[in-house]
Simulated scan of single mutants.
Amino acid sequence: MKNKHIYMMVLGLCAALMTGCTENERMRYENKPCVYFSSVTESDSIPYSFAAVIKDTATINVPLKIIGEAVDKDRVVAFRTAPASTAKDGVHYRLPETEVKVPAGKVTAEIPVKVYNKELDNGDVSLVLQLTPNADFDLGYSDRLTARVVITNQLVKPSYWRILSIYYGAYSKAKHRLCIQIQGFDFEPKLKGSMIQTYMSYGRLVYNYLLKTPVWDEETKQWITADWSPL
Rank of each mutant, 00 (worst) to 15 (best):
M1L: 09
K2M: 13
H5R: 12
V10I: 14
G12C: 12
L13Y: 00
L13R: 03
C14T: 12
A15Q: 06
G20I: 02
C21S: 13
C21W: 11
T22D: 14
N24Q: 11
Y29T: 11
E30V: 00
V35T: 03
S38L: 08
S38N: 01
S39A: 15
D44C: 06
Y48I: 01
Y48S: 00
S49P: 03
V53T: 11
V53M: 08
I54V: 12
K55Q: 13
D56I: 02
T57I: 08
A58W: 11
T59W: 02
I60C: 13
N61D: 11
V62Y: 00
V62E: 04
P63D: 08
P63C: 07
L64T: 07
I67S: 15
G68W: 03
E69K: 13
V71D: 06
V71W: 04
D74S: 10
D74I: 08
V76S: 15
V77D: 07
F79W: 00
R80S: 12
R80C: 14
R80E: 15
T86Y: 05
A87E: 01
G90T: 01
G90M: 04
R94K: 14
E99G: 09
E99M: 13
G105V: 03
K106M: 15
K106H: 14
V107M: 06
A109S: 14
E110P: 01
P112G: 00
P112W: 01
V113I: 09
K114V: 09
K114S: 04
V115C: 11
Y116S: 00
Y116C: 03
N117L: 03
K118S: 14
E119N: 11
L120Q: 05
D121M: 00
N122E: 15
N122A: 14
D124K: 15
D124F: 05
S126D: 13
L127H: 02
V128I: 03
L131I: 03
T132M: 15
F137P: 00
G140L: 04
S142C: 09
L145H: 00
A147V: 01
T152F: 04
T152Y: 08
N153A: 09
N153L: 06
Q154L: 06
Y160G: 09
I163T: 07
I163E: 11
I163G: 12
L164V: 00
S165D: 09
Y167D: 15
K175M: 02
C179I: 10
I180Q: 07
Q181W: 12
Q183V: 00
E188P: 01
P189F: 06
P189K: 01
P189G: 02
L191G: 09
L191F: 10
M195N: 14
I196N: 06
Y199I: 09
M200Y: 06
Y202H: 12
Y202W: 07
G203L: 01
G203R: 04
R204E: 13
R204D: 14
Y207N: 07
N208Q: 08
L210N: 11
K212H: 10
T213C: 13
T213W: 09
P214S: 05
W216E: 10
D217L: 00
D217P: 04
W223N: 08
T225F: 02
T225W: 01
S229Y: 12
S229C: 06
L231F: 10
